[in-house]
């Protein structure tokens, strides 16, 4: 099976900071991939580089057979790759409805937009209820749902989730992971960056462990659960 996304020796550099130092990864259609690692390991930089928000100083990113290295961020929604960013970053002064409308900004196909609205409101009935409320007044869990809902409005083939459970109550975290399994059934391919390693490996098919901007280990979720490298990567040992 050919890869939906393939990344070859990706480097990300912000001035003097070399956040990602040569990463290779493949994502196949229908998979859930977990990106794991300690703070500052380069997980978020990798996701941001995939959608053009961080500069890829070297390497190659191929999505659906197209070389998208160095493309502007505004191109990716239309190509079918979206990111639900770390810290949710919903538009607080826009209503829930306007946030979702912005999620569908790149879509020209009217019936598809209508289906997207229904899908998001079915997944998150609370967003339907609060659609005229300012996003800034939602609870953290609801904002996370809005951030994911907004990313789903463009019907992505590949959804990148950056720390979807960060700062949320345990009960909400469970809901988020349930959501990931529901989305998988709907055929959405996902790359998930998570601090919550055990839950991430429960839903993921495969995972990559990052340390100091490099891949320290990779394999199926079952392999990684038993691996020493995973613990080492979090404890910061080499």
């Amino acid at each position: 099976m050919s890869a939906l996304l393939s990344v070859q020796s990706l480097h990300v550099q912000y001035g003097a900071v070399h956040a990602v130092r040569g990463i290779d990864l493949d994502v196949r259609e229908g998979e859930i991939i977990a990106l794991l690692g300690a703070n500052g390991a380069g997980k978020s930089s990798t996701l941001n580089a995939l959608v053009g928000l961080a500069p890829a100083s070297q390497g190659k990113i191929v999505f659906r057979g197209q070389d998208v290295t160095g493309s502007a961020p505004e191109r990716f929604a239309a190509l079918g790759m979206t990111l639900s960013p770390e810290g949710r970053r919903v538009f607080g002064t826009l209503s829930v409805r306007e946030n979702l409308l912005m999620g569908a900004y790149s879509m020209r196909d009217k019936p598809a937009v209508k289906t997207a609205w229904e899908r998001v409101f079915d997944l998150f009935p609370i967003l339907r209820e609060r659609r005229e409320q300012f996003a800034g007044t939602l609870s953290g869990g609801q904002q996370q749902m809005l951030a994911v809902g907004r990313a789903l409005m463009s019907n992505p083939r590949l959804l990148l989730l950056d720390e979807p459970s960060l700062g949320l109550a345990p009960k909400i975290v469970e809901q988020i992971f349930e959501l990931i399994t529901v989305l998988r059934k709907q055929g959405v391919t996902m790359v998930v960056v998570e601090q919550n390693v055990s839950m991430a490996l429960e839903v993921a098919d495969r995972g990559y462990v990052l340390a100091n901007g490099r891949i320290a280990a990779s394999g199926t979720a079952a392999q990684l659960r038993n691996s020493q490298t995973l613990q080492a990567a979090y404890l910061g040992a080499d």
Binding site: P73, R75, F91
Partner: peptide, 16 residues
């Protein structure tokens, strides 16, 4: 309005 609040995320939505 979205871009005024968070330009990068607005670009992610496909807003040029």
């Amino acid at each position: 309005r979205a871009a005024a609040e968070d330009f990068s995320v607005a670009r992610l939505m496909g807003i040029r």
